[in-house]
Design a protein around this nucleic acid. Structure first.
Lengths: 187, 187
DNA sequence: GTCTATAAATCGATAGAC
DNA sequence: GTCTATCGATTTATAGAC
């Protein structure tokens, strides 16, 4: 990808995190880059193409990461720890893009169906890990959907919290999250 | 409040959840109500007033609920269980409004500062409960911010998951959440 | 209380000069 | 690769008839 195009997409992601896709105009984006709106179209074909570039790339990263985890020989708890590390890793290197993935996916047009397919597959794999853990007596036999929802909500919100941490150590954060999410906070 | 105004605000919240505040036009809203856009202005003064009505009311409900919990004599775990019930209660009766509270607060104009004040106070109270629990040996002495982030992310995402549950029993859900959030999923 | 008509501003995107 | 100029559509909101 050309360097200028990449710069446009990265700058767009920053603005999209602040106000959302719909509230950011091509003039806003151009101004942030120090050019005029018309000049953007020498590098990208539409606002929609920018959104697609941001969201689909990250969604495919999650899919690839999850497929690797499913292929591993770890037990359920080990797989969950891998999933947590996957979220910390992808999120910390795509803080702005994660905001679009979480909040602006419904504005995808041609790629909406594809995005939803990736998301459903991801959640299905996640659920399978939990069910496998219950079956093998590693995980409490509580409501699977509540556990899935609880862990995934936390991991999907990481993009809001990681920027507030100074001197982020990704492996320390992943370990703390594993502790809290798997073992709870009760003493 | 007049019945028609209430109906407009409730319908707006439904549309805001689907596409976000910025992507919903006054024509969309009017069409959903079976009238013309101009007719909306006989009941409300601006699109901004609708957003404010949705968000501030819920934010004040959370503030009032948290103040009650802070005044109670429960220990830290008991207070956390109350907070979980507060989120389940407010969210289940404001599914659509919670989407705006979470995703469209940045589009508030005159009331943005007030909203941020309420949110900060809420998080400070939440943090105090956790710190009190650590001090009294009820809660593990782990990273407070990670615990706060983890629990609050889950509770703030409830509006996405509650609609998927059929035959919702609020007290059952609150108990399941308390189990998972406080005791973890590890066996 | 809803309508038609419209104002004034802004939107994404294109044409063509340099 | 960026610019000026502009198109055509759409935005929030208002005026005034009914």
């Amino acid at each position: 990808m050309q360097s200028r195009k990449k710069q446009i997409i990265e700058t767009a992601a920053i603005l999209f995190k602040e106000k959302g896709f719909s509230a950011v105009t091509m003039r806003d984006l151009a101004a942030a880059l120090g050019i005029k709106a018309a000049s953007l179209y020498n590098h990208i074909s539409s606002k929609q193409e920018i959104l697609k570039a941001i969201i689909i790339a990250i969604a495919e990263d999650f899919t690839a990461g999850m497929k690797n985890i499913m292929r591993s020989n770890d037990n359920a708890i080990g797989k969950l720890e891998q999933v947590i590390r996957l979220h910390v890793s992808i999120t910390s290197s795509n803080i702005y893009g994660m905001a679009s993935l979480n909040n602006d996916w419904m504005h995808l047009e041609e790629d909406l169906e594809y995005y939803l397919k990736l998301r459903t597959e991801y959640e299905d794999d996640f659920r399978m890990i939990l069910e496998e853990g219950i079956e093998h007596n590693e995980i409490i036999d509580s409501n699977v959907e509540v556990m899935l929802f609880s862990i995934l909500s936390t991991l999907r919100s990481l993009y809001l919290w990681i920027p507030k941490k100074e001197n982020l150590d990704k492996s320390v954060l992943a370990n703390q999250l594993s502790d809290v999410l798997l073992k709870g906070i009760n003493k």
